[in-house]
């Protein structure tokens, strides 16, 4: 059976950002008030002071940000998080990343192998594409966004 790569949520990221930019998270921006939304809002602007009448256009988010905080999951989370109950649990790392241009904090898992020991608040990280899980029954590879250190100074 062939394997299909499918985003875990449609429209939240692209592997092929503008100007050869590679992997980018996708939000929306209100043309009336400039408010940016991630996860994307397509139906309405949530800024209560928005003058209204704007359009919500797709916008790629900054590819880099700084660590706001981080943690890991030492125990298996409940469904709908996909994991093989027969396999030993492998902790994953979560990182909250501050995007300066958007003035927002976005949560994500780290790229495989990046543990809490390698992170620090303030450290620069970049967003990359990765695999959340593979569904053997359907041959679906669920793709997601991940963060990894750029090697830049904290």
């Amino acid at each position: 059976m062939g394997r299909t790569r499918t985003p875990v949520v449609s429209g939240w990221f692209t592997e092929d950002g503008p100007e050869g930019g590679g992997f980018r998270l996708l939000g929306t921006r209100c043309s009336a008030c400039t408010a940016v939304f991630f996860p994307r809002e397509d139906a309405y602007c949530r800024n209560p002071r928005c003058p209204g009448g704007g359009l919500l256009a797709e916008v790629p988010l900054s590819p880099r940000g700084r660590v706001w905080s981080y943690t890991d999951g030492r125990y298996r989370p409940p469904a709908p998080y996909a994991s093989d109950p027969d396999a030993p649990w492998e902790p994953y790392t979560l990182v909250a990343v501050e995007l300066e241009a958007e003035g927002m904090v976005v949560l994500g898992q780290t790229a495989p192998g990046v543990t809490v020991a390698e992170l620090a608040v303030g450290m620069e990280v970049e967003v990359v594409g990765g695999v959340l899980n593979e569904d053997a029954d359907t041959g679906t590879v669920w793709t997601t966004w991940q963060f990894r250190p750029t090697g830049g100074a904290a």
Binding site: V8, V9, P39, W68, S69, Y70, T71, D72, G73, P77, P78, A79, P80, Y81, A82, Y92, L94, A96, L107, G108, Q109, A120, V121, G122, L132, T144
Partner: peptide
């Protein structure tokens, strides 16, 4: 639903993010 499906972000994960932030 999404925070569990996409991130496995349990309630303690959020508490831990706040705790780490306080430490920093």
């Amino acid at each position: 639903w999404l925070r569990f499906r996409v991130l496995g972000a349990t309630n303690p994960a959020y508490f831990a993010l706040y705790a780490r932030r306080r430490m920093a």
